[in-house]
Amino acid sequence: MHERLSFHIKRDSFIHNLNPLTKLVLTLTLILIAFTFPWYWTPHLLVLVAIIPLSLLGKVFREFSVTALRLILPAAGFLFLMQAFFQPVGSDVIFKFYFLDVTQESLMFAFRNAMRVFVMVSAFTLFLVTTHPSELMSDLTRRGLPGQFSYVIISTLQILPQIIAKSQTIIAAQRSRGLDTESSFFKRAGSLIPLVGPLVFGSLMEVEERAIAIEARGFTSKQTKTSLHEIPDPSFDQMLRWVLVALIILSIALNLWLS
């Protein structure tokens, strides 16, 4: 199967080779600092000194900027506009738009919040792009996350690509037998109906088969399991994680202290 909808891009880079937990902690650090560090330009600076360099380091800058431009920026831009217009702070009105006042404070406020959201989403994007979901899950399971929990997450991540693949297969089968799905709108809408039954039915069958398959490999066994695929966790990763946790604590402490 080709992993069509998982965000992961397979590359060999420093970031890719970090332990998944380290990357998760790194992501959370970036987000928490962006939201808690009590200095106005923090999220802006983070984009420049962390997000962009990290994407270069992970050799995913091109893919990352495409996603950022297409998805994250429009969303952050929309948030910016909403807050700039509707945030009733400040008195220094820059301009009026019908009954809406845009003040300097609301602009600044909106700019920072948009950047915070930008940091949050782009940090997560970087994380997803450089981490294979099953690697993350096997690492977390090894660290004591219940197997049932990882199963739910992994199968949720997989279900969409699988349903898409399955519906394409059925559509191909039906078209090969003369079902016209290309012509008029009504015909196309009508052709969805014969698709629904097999899709739901087939997906249910697969759930059962998968349950049997994983149980056959001792899914609910209480014994400690070994893994074919060992995920390295060198001391560098462990140290890095402590440094990051320290940064988070520092940022939150400063925030509480100054407020």
């Binding site: 191909a172 089968a173 090969s176 014969p194």
Partner: peptide
């Protein structure tokens, strides 16, 4: 030519019947 139209001239039995069958 659309696949649906070509189906009147070419019948194709899939390699894997599970990918071809969808009826009750």
């Amino acid at each position: 030519t659309s696949v649906a139209k070509l189906a009147s001239r070419v019948g194709y039995v899939f390699q894997n019947p599970d990918e071809q069958l969808f009826s009750r």
